[in-house]
Simulated assay, not measured.
Amino acid sequence: MAFPRLEHVGIVVGDLAAAKAFFAELGLEVEGEMTIEGPAVDRITGVAGGRSEVAMLRTPDGHGALELIRYLAPAGPDGDPGAPANTPGIRHILFEVQDIEDVLHRLRPHGAELVGELVQYEDSFRLCYVRGPEGIIVELAERVG
C-alpha cells in the first residue's frame, strides 16, 4: 500500500491576517479564502454552531499546504502561545529555505522571535526554531554542503 500524500496541516489562529502575512513572507501563496459553516461542518469538527474564516496557503512547489482557520463562533479555549518545544501535541512545522539569515530578517517584522539559536547541525543543515503568530513554532532549515 502506498503512503497517502499529506495534503495540508490545519492551524487555528486568532489573527488570520497576521498569520497569512507571516507565512506569505516564507513564500507560501494564498490559494483561496472562504467562510465555512453549517451542519456538515459541525458534524465533521464536533464543534456545534461553528463558523470560521479559512485561508488555504500552498507551498510554491505545490506539494503541501497550511489551512489557517479563525473561528468566528463559538469561542474556543485559549492555548498557550509560549508552550515550550517539548509540550505534547503538534509542536512545530519545518520549511527548508535558502539564505536562512535573510528569512529571519524578513520574518522579524511579522513577530518572529528565535526560540533558541541558529545552529549548524553536522554537515547537513543550519537550523533554528522561530516562534511566529499565535506561538506557532516554525523550524527553518538551510541545506549546507
Rank of each mutant, 00 (worst) to 15 (best):
E101V: 05
L66F: 12
E96C: 03
R5I: 14
Q98V: 15
F3T: 14
G10D: 00
M34Y: 00
L104G: 07
G14S: 13
P88V: 11
I100W: 00
A24P: 03
E117W: 05
R58Q: 13
M34H: 01
E53M: 09
H105R: 15
E7N: 14
L114E: 03
P133A: 06
M56A: 09
H92A: 09
E101C: 04
L72P: 02
D99Y: 02
N86S: 14
V30W: 00
F22W: 00
V144I: 15
I136L: 15
G132D: 01
A85H: 08
R58N: 06
R106I: 08
P84F: 05
E31C: 06
V47I: 15
H105M: 11
D78F: 05
A112V: 07
G82S: 14
G64N: 09
R106S: 10
G145E: 14
G64F: 15
K20V: 15
L66A: 03
E96S: 13
G116Q: 07
L127D: 02
E142I: 08
H8L: 10
A85K: 13
A55W: 01
A40M: 12
T59F: 09
G116R: 10
F125W: 12
I136Q: 10
G135W: 07
L68Y: 01
N86R: 09
D80H: 05
E67Y: 01
A141T: 04
P81R: 07
E67F: 06
L107N: 02
R108T: 12
D42R: 01
A55G: 02
V138F: 09
R106A: 13
T59Q: 08
E122L: 14
M34F: 11
I136A: 10
V13T: 03
R106P: 05
V97Y: 00
C128D: 07
F22H: 03
H110L: 11
D78R: 14
K20T: 10
K20E: 06
A112K: 04
P74V: 07
P4V: 07
G14V: 03
A18S: 13
A75L: 10
L114R: 05
E139F: 05
Y71A: 09
P88F: 08
I93A: 08
R106K: 13
T35I: 15
L72Y: 04
I100D: 01
E29T: 13
V47K: 06
I69L: 11
E67W: 00
R91W: 08
G32F: 02
L72A: 09
H105I: 08
F22Y: 13
G89A: 09
N86E: 12
L26N: 04
F125K: 00
L16A: 02
G132P: 02
G89I: 08
E101T: 11
E53L: 14
A18K: 12
V47W: 02
I36M: 13
P109W: 06
T59W: 07
P109G: 04
V54G: 03
Y129G: 09
D61N: 12
T45C: 02
D15L: 01
L107D: 05
